[in-house]
């Protein structure tokens, strides 16, 4: 699999560390932390997910991937995605 790192270009997926769903945002209210830490959607289809280019530029990036076909639609730096 190839990951289109916005900084390094198309790279082998083995250079990256997978984290999972990019949707959860760290909450401010205490009672929202359980869901933030433990609850994840498991969509069949396009999903925005976090990858870390550990053996490259060390950027956290948000990759949009179809969980059924592994087709990758694009990627952006997590820093930019959060803004």
């Amino acid at each position: 699999m190839r990951i289109p790192c916005p900084f390094c270009g198309d790279r082998d997926a083995r250079e990256f560390v997978y984290r999972g769903d990019a949707a959860p945002r760290r909450p401010t209210a205490d009672d929202e932390f359980h869901d933030y830490v433990y609850l994840r959607a498991n969509p069949a289809g396009a999903m925005r997910e976090l990858w870390y280019h550990a053996q490259g530029c060390r950027s956290w990036i948000v990759v949009t991937r179809d969980t059924r076909t592994h087709e990758i639609f694009g990627a952006e730096l997590a820093k930019d995605a959060a803004r």
Binding site: R19, R26, K79, A82
Partner: peptide, 16 residues
């Protein structure tokens, strides 16, 4: 390596 990844996550994803 885990801590480096953790710190990068904190500064790039949680508190960019």
């Amino acid at each position: 390596a885990t801590v480096m990844q953790h710190i990068d996550h904190a500064r790039q994803v949680i508190w960019p």
